[in-house]
Every structure is written in structure tokens, then in C-alpha cells.
């Protein structure tokens, strides 16, 4: 931070130390044929290094839009947003984050290994370094040995793991995930959630995770951001009391159910606004 902070954070002073992502009064209004749509209104949030933050809310609450703002894929119309002390666009250029989309989006004409190496090729890594990194991240997502396989030879869950490996390959500190497991069945999803936590523990990344599943959000996150629509805004931010070490059966503990209950309440109060 420090030197670069001036451009990024206006108004209420600099972001607190350790904030990797800092949003202040963020607005985003889309102009449509039916008049303006307030996708985001007055969103303020600090995300600390090493946090696992989930964004949860009904569709249209702006959770994906907020993630896309962090990624520099959308331009906010008001407020300020800094990523790694830079503007989101500068952070994007500096390759500060890996983005995992809802669909794995692997290229059918590339093997799994060559799919994972795609961002590395684009970023100009050397051949030896690419091979080393591909092997490392594929091992990290439990896909060692699948390097030569084509996407169609893998299950949906494995494809999504490959896409996570691809997002990890260039060692960005931030991982942005937009409902990555939304299209998978519950059993696969549980398994991947568990693996994601292990991966997070091993790599110390900052993860922003968009979901519409309450158990998923509570199980994964250190902080849960509850959002509501029209206009898209934050209604509650819950710091999870759960320990970082989380076996799957933590979901039956009273602490877990407490947090889940509070998330559900937050979602409900968001809806009450509409009457």
C-alpha cells in the first residue's frame, strides 16, 4: 500500500493494513432500455489477506457483479475500489488474481495439461517453467497423471478442478470464484469443497467465493457477506467462529448451524425490504 493508496482509496482514508481488497461506497448502475438498474449501491467492504470470503444472496443481488468489479471486468460508476493497493484494472494487468468461472471453460482442442498452461503461455513463461508449474498445480488439485487427457475424457468435477488449477498456475495471491461448483451434484460438490479448503490452507491465498448455497458458504468461509437485490447491497457481514481446520462433519455442530441460521436471517431481512 502506502504510495499507491492515494489513487485507490478516497473519502474515509486509506484501507486498513492488511486489506487486499478495499471497497468504499461502490456504485454500479447499468443503463438499460427500461431505465437504470442499480446492480451495486453503496457497497463497502475490506477483505484481508488470507481471508476466505463468500458472497451469498438471491440472483440479482450483485454478488457476481461485485466479483467482476474486483476483476476489472466491470467499471464501477461510483465509489472507490482497490485491489492490492492498485485500481482493479492495474491489478488485472499485473495478473493479481486467478478467476474461476461457473463453467470450467476448458478448450476442447487442448489437453488438460495444455489447458492449464494456456495462461502461462499468454504470460510468456518459459517452456521448462510451464511444465514444472503445470505438474505442480495439477498435483495440487489431485489431477496428477491426467495431463495428457482431453477435457471430454474427464467428469464435470474433474474439469472444474482443472479450471481451478489453471487459475492457480500463475501464482496470483487472490482467487476469485464465481459459483464454481454451481453446476455439480451435491456429492461432488462436498468433495470439492473439502479439497478447496485444503488447497486454501496449503497456499494461503485470499479467496472470494460467490455462491447461492448457505451450507457451502458457511462451510468454506472465514467471512460471509450476505447481499440483497434491487439495489444490490450488503445486508450483513458475518465473521465465522468456526476454526480454520474443518472436517465435513463440522456441518452438524451447533456453531455451524448458528452461523447458517444467521445467514438465513440475513437473506430473509434482505427480502423483507421489497414487502
Amino acid at each position: 500500500m502506502g504510495a499507491g493508496a492515494g489513487q485507490a482509496v478516497a473519502g474515509q482514508g486509506a484501507a486498513p493494513a492488511g486489506a487486499v481488497i478495499a471497497a468504499r461506497n461502490l456504485d454500479l448502475t447499468f443503463q438499460t432500455g427500461d431505465g437504470p438498474v442499480h446492480a451495486l449501491k453503496g457497497v463497502s467492504l475490506d477483505i484481508r489477506k488470507g481471508d476466505f470470503v463468500s458472497f451469498i444472496g438471491p440472483s440479482g443481488c450483485g454478488k457476481t457483479t461485485f466479483l467482476r468489479c474486483i476483476a476489472g471486468l466491470e467499471e464501477p460508476t461510483g465509489g472507490s475500489l482497490s485491489v492490492n493497493g492498485m485500481t482493479p484494472d492495474a491489478a488485472r494487468r499485473a495478473r493479481a488474481y486467478g478467476y474461476v468461472f461457473q463453467a470450467a471453460g476448458l478448450y476442447p482442442w487442448r489437453t488438460i495439461g495444455r489447458n492449464v498452461s494456456l495462461p502461462l503461455e499468454i504470460m510468456g513463461y518459459g517452456r521448462a517453467e510451464i511444465a514444472e508449474r503445470v505438474a505442480r498445480v495439477l498435483a495440487l488439485v489431485d489431477l496428477a497423471g491426467f495431463e495428457k487427457k482431453y477435457p471430454w475424457q474427464l467428469s464435470g468435477g474433474m474439469q472444474q478442478r482443472a479450471s481451478i488449477a489453471r487459475a492457480l498456475a500463475f501464482d496470483a495471491d487472490i482467487l476469485l470464484m464465481d459459483e464454481p461448483f454451481g453446476a455439480l451434484d451435491e456429492i461432488v460438490r462436498d468433495h470439492l469443497n473439502e479439497q478447496l479448503l485444503q488447497l486454501w490452507a496449503r497456499t494461503d491465498k485470499t479467496i472470494c467465493f460467490v455462491t447461492h448455497s448457505i451450507p457451502e458458504a458457511v462451510y468454506l468461509s472465514t467471512r460471509i457477506v450476505v447481499m440483497s437485490p434491487r439495489p444490490g447491497r450488503i445486508t450483513d457481514v458475518i465473521d465465522s467462529p468456526l476454526p480454520r481446520e474443518r472436517p465435513l462433519d463440522i456441518r452438524d455442530t451447533p456453531e455451524f448451524l448458528d452461523v447458517a441460521h444467521r445467514v438465513r436471517e440475513g437473506l430473509r431481512s434482505g427480502h423483507a425490504y421489497e414487502g
Binding site: 488474481y97 478467476y99 468461472f101 461457473q102 471453460g105 494456456l118 503461455e121 499468454i122 504470460m123 500463475f170
Partner: peptide, 20 residues
């Protein structure tokens, strides 16, 4: 989505053309 993905990697227009 695929074009956005290219953007997240800060790919140049030429790279997007040849690779995607």
C-alpha cells in the same frame, strides 16, 4: 465467458485471436 477469461489473463488481441 471465454473472452472475459482471456481478459483476466491480460491477453493481447493477437493472443486471443490465435489461441481462442
Amino acid at each position: 465467458m471465454q473472452l472475459d477469461q482471456m481478459k483476466t489473463w491480460n491477453a493481447s488481441p493477437a493472443q486471443t485471436f490465435w489461441k481462442l
